[in-house]
């Protein structure tokens, strides 16, 4: 079984082998890609910044991460502990997502990075540059053209398709953390499917505010089993999580990886008489006119004037081009 093989519609990449295959690895180990080949192994001098391995991480580390990813895909929504490495960027700035992307990327991939929906926010620029330098992969701002998309806080508006991977940066992977801070206890709650407390929180919201007062990082139940934190995406994006692409979630500091395989049931928690509503600002985009996208509110002068524009910059630009 290989991760590339999981991405339907995309042929398995050759020549992206396990450099320095350890002889003591037992047969039960999962092998991820085509056999060892010299071209892309080890220190790749053809890429800028070639003092480091392809996509920065050494092959052994990538293999460890791929194992965690496969386990995550096999148990949708379950948080798999992994030995997160110290990355050359701060914890909390996407080290989990970067490690997951590094483990997924092949030289043929087309990589897109967004932060807050936009390709040109500083941290997105920084992460994209990191992979341009260490992996030499092609990068793109076009959602439809990307094979791997790393994101912070948004799901692109353009529906994703089979063969694409969406990698989320996750700050706190544990949906129960702010109800119960202890890891030992929350892991037990997941194991025993003891989720009453989660609904108590939603009950309290309604009792106090008349509705569920969670606007982002809105908890979901995956395939009827695990309650999962979708990372701090706005709840507007929650319904998109039932998609054709693979969704991978990486939390570097908290050392967890989890996943949603394609076409998996993802239900936002709610009550029958207070159903989940995916909310957004009641406006149209001032640039492309879209009425069905998530919007940024921009303050345009010091008199408090404001306008609303798509947070997904690629989606907005594509629509504007089409209209022009």
């Amino acid at each position: 079984m290989s991760l590339a093989g999981l991405r339907q519609g995309k042929p398995e990449h050759a020549g992206h082998g396990e450099a320095g295959e350890q002889p003591h690895e037992v047969a039960a180990d999962i092998h991820f890609a085509a056999p060892f080949s010299k071209e892309n192994a080890g220190m790749d001098e053809s890429v800028p910044g070639g003092a480091y391995n392809f996509a920065y991480l050494d092959e052994e580390t990538k293999r460890m991460i791929r194992r965690a990813i496969l386990k995550g895909i096999a148990i949708p929504g379950y948080q798999v502990p992994f030995a997160s490495r110290e990355m050359p960027m701060p914890y909390g700035w996407g080290t989990g997502g970067v490690q997951v992307s590094a483990a997924c990327l092949t030289p043929d991939d087309s990589f897109k990075v967004i932060d807050q929906g936009a390709d040109d926010t500083t941290n997105a620029v920084s992460i994209r540059k990191f992979f341009e330098r260490t992996a030499g992969v092609e990068t793109t701002e076009r959602t439809a053209e990307a094979t791997v998309i790393q994101t912070r806080h948004r799901i692109p508006e353009t529906p994703l398709t089979e063969g694409q991977i969406l990698v989320y940066q996750v700050p706190i992977p544990e949906p129960l953390r702010f109800l119960e801070p202890r890891e030992t206890e929350t892991r037990r709650m997941h194991a025993l499917e003891d989720y009453g407390l989660m609904h108590v929180k939603l009950y309290e919201d309604i009792a106090r505010h008349g509705e569920i007062a969670t606007a982002y990082a809105y908890p979901v139940k995956v395939e009827g089993r695990y309650v999962m934190d979708p990372s701090p995406i706005p709840k507007f994006d929650n319904p998109k999580m039932e998609m054709a692409a693979i969704q991978l979630f990486g939390a570097g500091r908290e050392q967890r990886i989890y996943a949603i395989p394609p076409y998996t049931r993802v239900v936002s928690l709610d009550f029958e008489d207070h159903p989940f509503v995916a909310g957004k600002a009641p406006h149209d985009c001032a640039l492309c006119g879209a009425s069905d996208t998530y919007l940024d509110e921009i303050i345009t002068d010091d008199a408090g004037s404001r306008m609303y524009v798509c947070s997904d910059t690629d989606h907005c630009a594509t629509r504007q081009e089409a209209a022009a």
Binding site: R154, A213, A215, Y216, I233, P234, G279, K280, A281, D296
Partner: peptide
């Protein structure tokens, strides 16, 4: 770990904040 997570709150949070803004307005 601590400083990374602490300082990450400097990063853009427009999207989360926008969601909170809409919620607070509605409430």
């Amino acid at each position: 770990q601590a400083t990374g997570f602490l300082e990450h709150i400097k990063l853009p949070h427009y999207v989360d904040f926008q969601a909170e803004l809409e919620l607070v307005r509605k409430l």
